[in-house]
Design a protein around this nucleic acid. Structure first.
Length: 471
RNA sequence: GGCCCCGUCGUCCAGCGGUCUAGGACGCCGGCCUUUCAAGCCGGUAACGCGGGUUCGAAUCCCGUCGGGGCUACCA
């Protein structure tokens, strides 16, 4: 039987990196086995689901390169792959379970439940504490699945091995809400059955729900799929990764200037490794080697520093032209219009910028001096060894050395300025630093001589003169 | 509280009974290079939670313990 896997995000938020990793692992597994990867939208929580979130999620998936074979917008035999379009189906299925004696109507009204929940919380207990202790009355309302007593539910999880739950510890759970919509358990399980899902690889937070899904799948007359529970992603404090830890969605990382290749590479490494001490690798190699059984059992902490390092590796590996093209819109954004003539000056410097950036916006920042006058100047690192007078002296000598320089290019600029440290009896670093700041405004910039060459004679001279009074 | 899962450097990953005085990567520290910042190169720091077994032999298997986490909703 050929592998069919799915990722089923709920459009109640943006694509979380944890979900993205689950998507990646499912995708890798499908590609590795020649199976089918499906994207389904689990939007049974009508109140919280929005189409904005849905498109955010799909955009992020596409951006990562996780293309799906069936699912939202791709067609296939199951319509829209959106649970909100199958509401009747779930309801009928729940009713059929009642008829078959597997489930029953439960009429505790939401206000009653709210009261119980409030009471529990008031006492510092879990919200569900009292709810299960009330015998279900019999009349209309929601439908609960009747969990069989005295039964062991055992299954073999691909990443964790054999896991067993006693049915007594599982409460009768709601499968159809009183408003007629299905809960996650029913909708998800029924879809998995209908769509012929063979492997469910999802977050470990759903491990305790798995016996419910197994029960439901059987009640629906189907063999449960094979489960693989992936370890959770944590923040630096060891708690589930969330907004509190800073960025937690793919879209945010994208906006910060991370490359999809770096993101995919990093996510792949969070709970899995291709072996051979390989750290940097692309999707092809991952597809070739990936298998769910090799996934790590213990949770992983999301380490932004390592992601950032990886991103730098990918930036340095880009073709220079691609790099320049990626930077251009960022520069245009902050400079306004950008004619080709001005852009050419950046292209000269571009490879030098590329070497020293880990995040795209940094690169734009380093290029900015070519297009705009420095608005402020970095605190000089020379302050400890050089006073205002010393700085003026450096700038004056630089102006003098460069004034009639011909031609204006890297080599000649370098030889003109090279004599300054000796003339001043100071180290080269201390001499060139004020010049750098005078011209770029920043103490972090591409190499000085190249920068001056790209900036051009007149602009460079103007800036040196202007900085004389400001530095 | 109950149920379930997890436990190798600060972090991610390798290790599947002997080759482990535990390997790679990020980070950190030092050095080289050097006009800054990076990059690059060289070196260093640092881990099998603990206690019992099993075995000739355990990071690797078993039990316990401690610690961490998840779930316990008409959220998913």
């Amino acid at each position: 039987m050929s592998v069919r896997v799915r990722i089923a995000p709920s459009p109640t938020g943006t694509l979380h990196v944890g979900t993205a990793r689950a998507a990646l692992y499912n995708w890798l597994y499908a590609r590795h086995t020649g199976g089918t990867f499906i994207v389904r939208i689990d939007d049974t929580d009508l109140a919280r689901s929005t189409t904005e979130y849905e498109s955010n999620i799909l955009d992020s998936l596409r951006w990562l390169g996780l293309d799906w074979d069936e699912g939202v917008g791709v067609g296939g035999p199951h319509g829209e792959y959106r649970q909100s379009t199958r509401l009747d189906h779930y309801r009928q299925s729940a009713e059929a379970m009642v008829t078959a004696g597997l489930a029953y109507y439960d009429d505790r009204t939401p206000p009653e439940l709210d009261a119980l929940r409030a009471r529990a919380q008031g006492e510092g207990r879990h919200p569900g504490h009292y709810i299960r202790r009330i015998a279900p009355p019999a009349d209309s309302g929601s439908i609960r699945y009747a969990v069989p007593a005295d039964e062991s539910i055992t299954f073999t999880d691909v990443v964790r091995g054999e896991i067993s739950f006693e049915a007594d510890t599982i409460d009768d759970f709601v499968i159809l809400r009183s408003d007629g919509t299905p809960t996650y358990h029913l909708a998800s399980t029924l879809d998995d059955v209908d769509y012929g899902i063979t492997h469910v690889a999802r977050g470990e937070d759903l491990l305790p729900s798995t016996p419910k899904h197994i029960l439901l799948a059987r009640a629906l007359g189907s063999e449960p799929p094979t489960y693989a529970h992936l370890p959770l992603l944590f923040g630096a404090d060891g708690k589930k990764l969330s907004k509190r830890h800073g960025a937690d969605s793919v879209a945010e990382f994208r906006a910060m200037g991370y490359l999809p290749e770096a993101m995919v590479n990093y996510l792949a490494l969070l709970g899995w490794s291709p072996g051979d001490d390989l750290t940097i690798f692309g999707p092809d190699l991952a597809i070739e080697r990936f298998d769910l059984v090799d996934v790590q059992k213990n949770p992983a902490i999301f380490d932004v520093d390592k992601l950032t390092w990886l991103n730098g590796e990918y930036i340095r590996a880009m073709a220079p032209d691609d790099f320049a093209e990626r930077i251009r819109p960022l520069v245009e954004d902050s400079v306004g219009c950008l004619d080709d003539e001005r852009w050419k000056t950046f292209e000269e410097l571009s490879p030098l910028v590329q070497e020293r950036t880990k995040l795209l916006p940094e690169a734009a920042g380093q290029a900015m001096f070519l297009f705009v006058e420095p608005l402020s100047y970095d605190e000089g690192s020379w302050a400890k060894v050089m006073d205002k007078k010393g700085v003026d002296e450096v700038l004056d000598l630089a102006v003098e050395a460069l004034t009639d320089l011909d031609p204006w290019e890297t080599g000649s600029i370098e030889s003109a300025l090279r004599t300054l440290p000796e003339q001043l009896g100071r180290g080269a670093g201390k001499v060139f630093q004020p010049i750098r700041v005078a011209v770029t405004g920043s103490s972090v910039s591409p190499p000085l001589f190249e920068s001056l060459a790209a900036l051009g004679r007149s602009t460079s001279m103007e800036r040196l003169a202007r900085a004389r009074s400001r530095l």
